[in-house]
Nucleic acid binder design. Structure first.
Length: 805
DNA sequence: AGCACGCCGACT
DNA sequence: GTCGGCGTGCTC
């Protein structure tokens, strides 16, 4: 008797263990570790993952597996083990770990229905229930609830007239296209064509098409567009038996309509040769090693990636390339597709659930060898990984900010060590953590200090905006920047203007008393949206109208303030009416593909100025950009986050890298109210080493990473007192279990003290070595299990948090 | 997470 | 005496 151990789809403490099920004889060869199954669980049926097969169980009354949901496992052995690792390292449930490794399309959808097991007994039903069914044999459970008939239905169910059933469904199906084929041979076809009545023109064209392309089967869409016939015409021919139709599984290919010219490897420079040699030897020896590829923008890191991957492919192995979501641009994808063609799968959030699922299936079916994708691509189900590359290693988007709170870099290193293959972390501004590890020799440091074309770095002017104000310039453009803007316009060169992300940009303030409108639920400043003339909360979506008078002092001088991209755009058109501006922010790039369209337009020279947020800081590589302006470098610097200096430095460096990448020299203007800050000062000459030393000193003094590890516990509750008292208890408990070396900060209100009407308190633990910490944190979760399950209390734990707000 | 079971207050 | 409130505990 075969028994399956199953992790069921119930994310809760009590169910975070395997449940045993009998495997029916007929399913013995299908139900293997890694397949999803439909199992009875209590009164309902739910999805589960088979994690192991055994022959005995401690449990007496085992139920049988209802049906498998896969014919081949969706998780291989390595990923099953990786799931355990994830659970352990992020304190998440097993089921969440498995689900995060798979495309969302594979997540189960549950349907609760009521059916009539015996249609003939329909008349015996109570009148109201009969009306509800209204002739149908099944109805959704929700309808019963909506009509307040649950109690009545229960009676009918006890009488055996109706039955409540639970269905487990995949969220999505494979896409299938109708394909048409001729059933007759050529001469027979010809006969049929001749027999057609003269008015059957459409049929004639279709048949002639098959006469020409006889052996092919063709999908409906192509056939219709090739012949100009209608669907009805084809259907008639199928009915006549002259054609046959069948469904063939196809991939939704987001890049399917594009042609990619093949590109050969480029010759490497000496510097590149030196850097790639140790990577290649690690590949050859199947040796796990982590490389930190530290190379300035434009130093040719991508070519290193491409040629390393080529070596991996030559060995018959596979590669994962992680790229931050925002730089996963078509340009980036193109470089990989041009080199490796159809062997590349692309995964990013712009794809629909179906497209993601299809890309994933290409990997699962061994049809591709390289995956280029954002964070979650790290779980690509390859079996012979030969290399993992993480580009822009310092990017915070590699950290998932919801459960399971994993960092793709950690997962990469974990996977690479089981596969015995190298990890390459690439960046022009490495995270302090990684650079420190390289300094210590944990990672191997590879250096590409020069730009490929020996282009000098752009000159950077740092403009003190306080000075501008003192001189009477109240505009958002300094005189320096404005002059340069005009100059570029005259020369027909392009400018990129960079503004920090929205939310910090535009808010409503009373000019008389300084009152700022906050969200009633979240206590953060409401963002003003000019387009709808509304104020919105960034966190909970709360909206309200702009007050006409100040609620504090009744002054009428209350209006929006600060600089959003829209406002900059307005001022630009006022000051430089002849300038053509493209604005890129969340509002203008919301729709799929609009991001690309705007960039293309800019590349084609359809605009002089590209104005945008974060998203334009990366990957832009257009020859005609000779000026980059950063409108306010401070916004990021003053965020309540110990990494804000690092982020500011990285951002400024990154943005400066956009200028003058080709023949024309570049200039950068950075506007700031704190020009003396080292992260701004050193970003100008792109002096990473000095920045690193300065910032390391600060981190050491304040006991932050990389000198200390962090863990963050956040408690939220609708009642302030409850949130505080629980956080206090937790803090006391943790400190009793820590060594004297550790530091615990808190309880304090979270930087955002209230979200969606819940008060948030937190404590932050700084430590060097606390082997017992994870166990302690787990026991806290256990202790509050009941209260968290009911939803009144929320406790989130982040081992190694990236956002401390 | 659901869902059943079970033990206390306000109704026919 | 019963309906129904939601606290408690189980699901292979």
């Amino acid at each position: 008797m075969k028994i399956a151990s199953v992790i069921v789809d119930v994310p809760a403490k009590q169910t975070d263990k395997t449940f045993d099920y009998l495997i029916p004889q007929r399913l013995e060869n299908v139900v293997v570790p890694g397949v999803r199954v439909n199992v009875p669980f209590g009164p309902r049926n739910i999805q589960g993952f088979v994690t192991g097969i055994k022959t005995e169980s401690d449990f007496k009354k085992l139920k049988e597996i209802v049906e498998p949901l896969d014919l081949t496992p969706v998780l291989n052995k390595e990923l099953l083990t990786l799931g355990d690792w994830l659970t352990e390292h992020t304190l998440c449930y097993k089921i969440s770990a498995f689900q995060v490794m798979l495309p969302a399309a594979l997540k189960a959808k549950y349907e609760k229905k009521v059916i009539l097991p015996d249609d003939r007994k329909r008349n015996e039903l109570e009148e109201e229930i009969q009306t509800l069914f209204n002739g149908a044999t099944e109805i959704g459970w929700q309808e019963v609830v909506d009509n307040n008939l649950v109690a009545l239905l229960k009676k009918e169910s006890d009488r055996g007239l109706v039955e409540v059933v639970y269905q487990v469904k995949d969220r999505l199906r494979k896409k299938r296209l109708k394909h048409i084929k001729a059933t007759l041979n050529r001469s027979e076809l010809q006969v049929e064509i001749d027999c057609l009545t003269p008015q059957a023109k459409g049929q004639k064209v279709v048949l002639e098409y098959f006469l020409e392309n006889h052996d092919d089967q063709v999908d409906m869409r192509t056939l219709l567009s090739a012949t100009g016939a209608s669907q009805a015409t084809v259907k008639t021919l199928v009915k006549k038996g002259l054609l046959s139709e069948k469904y063939i599984e196809v991939y939704r290919d987001p890049y399917g309509e594009r042609e990619f010219a093949h590109h050969e490897p480029l010759p490497l420079t000496n510097a590149q040769e030196q850097v790639i040699t140790p990577i290649l030897s690690s590949i050859e020896d199947d040796r796990h090693e982590v490389f930190l590829l530290y190379g300035v923008t434009g130093s040719g890191k991508t070519e290193i990636y491409l040629q390393s991957i080529q070596r991996v492919l030559n060995k018959g192995e596979e590669a994962i390339v992680l790229v931050p979501e925002i730089s996963l641009t078509p340009q980036m994808v193109k470089r990989f597709k041009e080199r490796f063609g159809d062997l590349v799968a692309v995964m990013h959030s712009g794809l629909s659930a179906g497209e993601k699922y299809d890309e994933w299936r290409k990997i699962q079916r061994r049809e591709v060898k390289v995956v280029v994708g954002a964070r979650s691509a790290i779980f690509a189900p390859f079996e012979n990984l030969g290399i993992i590359i993480i580009d822009e290693e310092h990017e915070t988007s590699y950290k998932q900010e919801e459960n399971p709170r994993y960092h793709a870099r950690d997962v990469a290193i974990q996977r690479a060590s089981t596969h015995g293959c190298p990890v390459v972390l690439g960046s022009a501004t490495p995270s302090l953590e990684s650079f420190a590890r390289a300094q210590k020799g944990v990672y191997t440091l590879l250096n590409l200090p020069k730009r490929m074309n020996e282009q000098p770095l752009p000159t950077v002017d740092i403009v003190d905006m306080r000075e501008e104000l003192r001189e009477g310039n109240r505009s958002m453009f300094s005189r320096n920047l404005f002059e340069k803007l005009q100059d570029r316009l005259e020369k027909g060169e392009q400018t990129v203007l960079f503004l920090n992300k929205r939310g910090h940009s535009s808010f409503v303030m009373c000019r008389d008393c300084g009152f700022v409108v906050n969200c009633p639920n979240c206590e953060i400043t409401l963002t003003y949206h000019r387009f709808q003339d509304l104020m919105k909360c960034h966190y909970c979506g709360h909206e309200e109208k702009v007050p006409t008078t100040c609620p504090e002092c009744t002054s009428e001088h209350i209006r929006y303030f600060g600089t959003g991209t829209q406002k900059v755009e307005e001022e630009l058109t006022k000051l430089l009416p002849e300038a053509r501006v493209i604005r890129m922010d969340v509002d203008t790039t919301g729709r799929k593909g609009s991001h690309e369209k705007l960039l293309n337009a800019f590349q084609e020279g359809e605009a002089d100025i590209l104005l945008g947020t974060q998203m334009i800081a990366k990957g832009l590589d257009f020859p005609n950009i000779t000026l980059v302006g950063v409108l306010s470098a401070d916004t990021m610097l003053h965020l309540p986050d110990f990494r804000s200096s690092e982020k500011t430095f990285q951002l400024l460096t990154q943005v400066s890298g956009r200028a003058g990448r080709h023949e024309l020299p570049g200039e950068v203007v950075v506007q700031t109210y704190t020009p003396e800050h080292y992260s701004i000062e050193l970003a100008g000459p792109q002096d990473y080493d000095r920045f690193y030393n300065q910032e390391m000193m600060a981190r050491k003094v304040h006991k932050y990473p990389p000198f200390y590890y962090l863990s963050l516990v956040t408690v939220s509750h609708e009642e302030l007192m409850k949130a505080v008292s629980v956080t206090e208890k937790i803090t006391r408990f943790i400190s009793s279990r820590l060594s004297s070396e550790a530091v615990i900060l808190g309880p304090v209100a979270s930087p955002i003290p209230r979200i969606k009407n819940r008060y948030r308190y937190q404590c932050l633990i700084k430590y060097k070595k606390e082997p017992e910490l994870r166990t302690s944190l787990k026991s806290i979760l256990d202790h509050y299990q009941q209260e968290t399950a009911s939803g009144s209390l929320q406790i989130s734990m982040d081992l190694n948090p990236y956002i401390l707000m």
